[in-house]
C-alpha cells in the first residue's frame, strides 16, 4: 500500500514537471497557432543558466531568477526574431524553423559550456528525505510538486481573473476583434510567448539537480510534452494539467507495477524485457487511444 502511494506521488511529481512545459506549449499553440519544437530548448536554457549562476555564485536563490529570466528573454527573442513572421504560415514552415532553432541552441550550448554535463548541487536546505508516515520521500521532490501546483494555481488565476488573461482568452478565439478594440496584439503575443518560455525555464531549473544538465536534454522531454498537450486538448491549460498528471501517473505506474504483474505470468527475464518494452510504448498507446475516442483531446479549447 505504501509502495502504491509512493509511486502515485512519483507520478504526480513527473506530471507537475510535464505540466510546466505543456502549459507554455499549449498556450502558444492555442493563442498563436504555432507549433514550437524549440520549446525543449527553452527548458535547456533555463537549466543551463541556473546551473551556471549556481556554480559561479554558489547560491541557488540567485540561480532561480537567472534561469527564469534567461528562458523568458530567449523566448521573447525567438518570438520577435522568428516566430512572429510565421503566424500566418502553415505548420510546415513552423516545424522547419523551430527544428532549425533546436540545432542552433544545442550547438550553442556546446560552444558556451562544453560537452561535459554541468554539475548542479541540490540546495542543502532541500536535501534529504522526510518521513510521511508510511514511507519517506525526498524533500526536493515534494518541493517540485508544491511549486508546480502553486504555479498551476497562479496560471489559472492569471487566465481567468486578470485583464491579461481576458485578452489571452479573447485573442485565442477572436483575434481580429481584439485587435479592432485597440489592443496591441503583437505585444500580447510576445508576452505570452515569454510566459510560456518562463514556465519551461522553471521546469528546467528545477530539473537541474534531479536530472542531468546536458546538451539535448530538451528533446528528451519534448516529445512527452507534446503527448501531454495533445491528450489534454490543444490550447487548453486545464487539459494540459489533466493530461500531464494522467501521463505522469500512467507512465510511472507502468514502470513500477507492470514487471511485477507480468512476472506472475511468465519467467523473470522475459517478463522484465516485455514490461520494459510495453512501458516504453505505454504513453504513446495512451495518446492513440485518447485521440481515437476523442479526436480533439480531453478538454478541447474551442468547442
Amino acid at each position: 500500500m505504501a509502495l502504491v502511494l509512493e509511486q502515485v506521488l512519483n507520478g504526480v511529481q513527473l506530471g507537475v514537471m510535464l505540466f510546466l512545459l505543456a502549459a507554455g506549449l499549449t498556450l502558444i499553440f492555442g493563442i498563436m497557432g504555432v507549433i514550437n519544437l524549440a520549446h525543449g530548448s527553452l527548458y535547456m536554457v533555463g537549466a543551463y543558466a541556473a546551473a551556471f549562476v549556481a556554480q559561479a555564485t554558489g547560491s541557488f536563490l540567485l540561480a532561480i531568477p537567472a534561469g527564469l529570466a534567461a528562458a523568458a528573454l530567449v523566448g521573447m527573442a525567438i518570438e520577435y526574431g522568428v516566430v512572429r513572421h510565421l503566424y500566418a504560415r502553415d505548420h510546415l514552415d513552423q516545424v522547419l524553423a523551430t527544428f532549425g532553432l533546436i540545432l542552433f541552441f544545442n550547438q550553442l550550448v556546446v560552444l558556451l559550456f562544453g560537452r561535459q554535463p554541468m554539475f548542479v548541487q541540490i540546495p542543502p536546505a532541500l536535501a534529504g528525505a522526510v518521513d510521511l508516515g508510511f514511507f519517506s520521500y525526498p524533500v526536493y521532490r515534494l518541493c517540485i510538486i508544491a511549486v508546480g501546483l502553486a504555479t498551476a494555481g497562479a496560471l489559472f488565476w492569471l487566465i481567468q481573473r486578470t485583464r491579461l488573461g481576458m485578452l489571452v482568452r479573447a485573442g485565442a478565439t477572436h483575434r481580429d476583434m481584439v485587435q479592432a478594440l485597440g489592443v496591441d496584439i503583437r505585444l500580447l503575443y510576445t508576452v505570452v510567448f515569454g510566459l510560456g518560455a518562463l514556465l519551461a525555464g522553471l521546469a528546467g531549473l528545477m530539473a537541474g539537480p534531479l536530472l542531468s544538465v546536458q546538451v539535448g536534454m530538451g528533446e528528451q522531454i519534448l516529445i512527452l510534452t507534446f503527448v501531454v498537450v495533445v491528450i489534454g486538448g490543444l490550447g487548453s491549460v486545464t487539459g494540459a494539467f489533466a493530461g500531464a498528471l494522467l501521463v505522469g501517473v500512467v507512465d510511472t505506474s507502468l514502470r513500477a507495477f507492470l514487471p511485477g504483474l507480468l512476472r506472475g505470468l511468465m519467467t523473470g527475464s522475459e517478463a522484465d524485457a516485455l514490461a520494459g518494452g510495453v512501458s516504453a510504448m505505454g504513453v504513446y498507446l495512451l495518446m492513440a487511444i485518447v485521440l481515437l475516442v476523442r479526436p480533439k483531446g480531453l478538454f478541447p479549447a474551442h468547442g
Binding site: F29, I35, H91, I223, F226, V227, V229, V230, L234, A273, G276, G277, A280, M281, Y284, L285, M287, A288, L291, L292, P295, K296, G297
Partner: peptide
Amino acid sequence: LALRTSGVQFIMITLAFAQMLFFFFVA
C-alpha cells in the same frame, strides 16, 4: 486509426505510432 484525427492531432498521432514502433524495435 490516425486518419480519424486531423490537423495538429494528426501530426502528433503519427509521431506517437512511430515512437511505438521505434521502442518496439529497440527492444
